[in-house]
Write a protein that binds this DNA or RNA. Structure first.
Length: 278
DNA sequence: CCGGCGGTATCAGTTTAAAG
DNA sequence: CTTTAAACTGATACCGCCGG
């Protein structure tokens, strides 16, 4: 069974950073957003750049949500921008965590490379054979782009003619991806965040999960300098007790097919609500 | 001559505008 | 108001120009 890899058309990370900043500036504002993005490509056409490259790449990477007028950052996309505000290196750290998480779960290039000891070209060829794509040319393009992104974030390094995994860096990333040390703080931040959104929306207790993900992740990052991805939020939320003598958490279903729903047991949910008993 | 950037053709759905 | 046409949107595969 060959793996499927999406084609990331825009894979230059510095460019993606600037695009994400446009999304942060103009959520739900397609016109300004499009203008902001096209400025980065000095006036190229919206069809090829905005629709053909930017939107599809960011969606494949899970960094944006919504269609036409509703385009906006996902929680992961927002985390990158928040980190970027601190420094470029921090932005890379966030991006690295998110990309590595995708790689570990879907593509596994890093694991494949760690096992082999091939030169660059042979390595790429062996990867190309393992993925499913419409043509060999397409497979090559996909692998090239993913490998390039892993190099840009520093997880793959050229060493003479060989290519190796930067183990020290990878272990740092894996620390960022490990939620076991964050569980204790999670409940505290989750309830604080819930309450602040609850107040913000004038005491309406039903909170959108994509929104609370964003806020929880930002709080973790700003207050504790900890990277928490969407997946980690979902994992830690699933691990919580939903019913105690202090509170009851309930989940709300989505109306139709939507993106990035919260999976709990066998179903997908869109909203969350907490009733405090004391 | 090669490859990367990004242009293009195309498609299936939608949405909007124009025409009747 | 209803029908018809045009434009828009997101996505995909493949192509071609240009710089090194």
């Amino acid at each position: 069974m060959k793996k499927k890899i999406d084609l990331i058309k825009e894979y230059r990370i510095q460019k993606l950073f600037r695009i994400l900043e446009c999304f942060e500036k103009y959520p739900f504002n397609r016109d300004s957003l499009r203008e902001c993005v096209l400025e980065l490509y000095n006036g190229k056409s919206e069809k090829s750049i905005f629709r053909g490259m930017v939107i599809s790449s960011l969606r494949h990477l899970g960094l944006i949500l919504g269609y036409d007028l509703d385009l906006r950052l996902s929680a992961n996309g927002n985390l990158i921008v928040a980190a970027l505000r601190k420094s470029k290196e921090e932005g890379l750290r966030a991006f690295r965590a998110i990309l590595t998480e995708i790689d570990h779960h879907e593509i596994m290039i890093l694991k494949m490379i760690a096992r082999k000891n091939l030169d660059f070209d042979n390595l790429k060829m062996s990867l190309v054979k393992k993925i499913q794509a419409p043509s060999e040319k397409q497979a090559k393009e996909r692998i090239n782009h993913w490998v390039s992104m892993l190099m840009q974030i520093g997880l793959l390094v050229k060493e003479n003619e060989k290519i190796v995994v930067a183990e020290t860096l990878l272990s740092k990333v894996e620390k960022d991806l490990d939620s076991s040390v964050k569980k204790d703080i999670f409940e505290k931040i989750f309830f604080e965040t819930y309450n602040s959104i609850f107040k913000k929306q004038e005491n309406i207790p039903i909170v959108d999960i994509p929104e609370i993900r964003t806020e929880v992740m930002t709080a973790f990052y700003i207050k504790y300098n900890l990277i928490v991805t969407e997946k980690q939020v979902d994992d830690m939320l699933r691990a919580m007790k939903f019913t105690t003598d202090e509170y009851i958490i309930s989940l709300g279903r989505a109306m139709g097919a939507e993106e990035k729903l919260f999976k709990y047991e066998r179903d997908y949910y869109r909203t969350i609500s907490v009733r405090f008993l004391k």
